[in-house]
Design a protein around this nucleic acid. Structure first.
Lengths: 144, 144
DNA sequence: TATAAATCAGATATTTTTGTCTGATTAAAA
DNA sequence: TTTTAATCAGACAAAAATATCTGATTTATA
């Protein structure tokens, strides 16, 4: 099966969007994120640990601890999360899997594909997570 | 890691492009395809079997047997190969992995992503493999 | 008709991804 | 100061994707 982002990346984005959508609270325990997004607690806390170490999320240990965004949501781009979890390979890798694909020795699909990937990159790089707040709230609601 | 097409799909496209690029020969044994594309013979013949059963490639058993395209290369679209191997999920699946994503209950990225996926679909659906012949020949050459 | 060269089917092995568990550590609050 | 509720690290388990192996079958040709 073809996929775009790894499952970890999908859930990482979901969790960051969730953190950006809750207002007036300091930190959110992973139990709540898991419950609201209907995903396993252990898995999402693993992912949030990764995002903590890459500086997108920050964590507070101990009782009353949990996770929060490490910076202003208008400074967090979707691209940051994708790069932190899935890396940059998707933007450089040959779509047909040829080992030495480049503009010098392009694969048959190289040019057409580059355009699509460039657009995707731009979108992920331009969109910041604060732009999704209302959409996220609606989506969380629809999961109930 | 993020991916677009599965490895099987990448190699399936490579193999079909290879078959479309050889001229004046009836069938090509998987050993030759594997050698030219520098990939394992057993794996590519497994993939070609799948493409045979979906009518894109045809096979001839026994001595002097091998694989060939089942139809005119200007009738084979990239999309055909993708659908045969990876299925259609990539075109309908929620990019953030939400279970119930649709235009009624869209995820935050739904609209932006739909546009990119539509463009990708169009490209795969419009391009036929005969259009890649010269590019394929050059690429094969670069692998040597 | 025997041999050689190929596909093909199914089983098995390996690797990667996904998900779970356990226990250590931390910090708030009773 | 003890209990409780949380992160965090690392090991482990399960599932999926990727790759290999074996042997049966098919067919051309010597």
């Amino acid at each position: 099966m073809a996929i775009i982002f790894s499952r970890k990346c999908e859930l990482g984005i979901q969790a960051v969007l969730y953190l950006s959508s809750v207002e007036g609270r300091n930190v959110i325990p992973s139990e709540e994120i898991a419950r609201e997004l209907k995903i396993p607690k252990e898995f999402i806390s693993k992912i949030l640990q990764e995002l903590t170490s890459s500086g997108i999320v920050s964590s507070k240990k101990g009782k009353m601890g949990g996770f929060s965004l490490a910076k202003n949501p208008n400074k967090i781009h979707l691209l940051d999360i994708v790069l932190a979890i899935d890396g940059s390979e998707i933007f450089s890798k040959c779509v047909l899997g040829f080992p030495n694909c480049s503009s010098e020795t392009p694969c048959p699909m190289h040019n057409t594909w580059s355009q699509l990937i460039d657009e995707t990159f731009k979108m992920l790089n331009e969109e910041t997570i604060d732009q999704f707040k209302h959409k996220t709230l609606r989506k969380i609601e629809s999961l109930k």
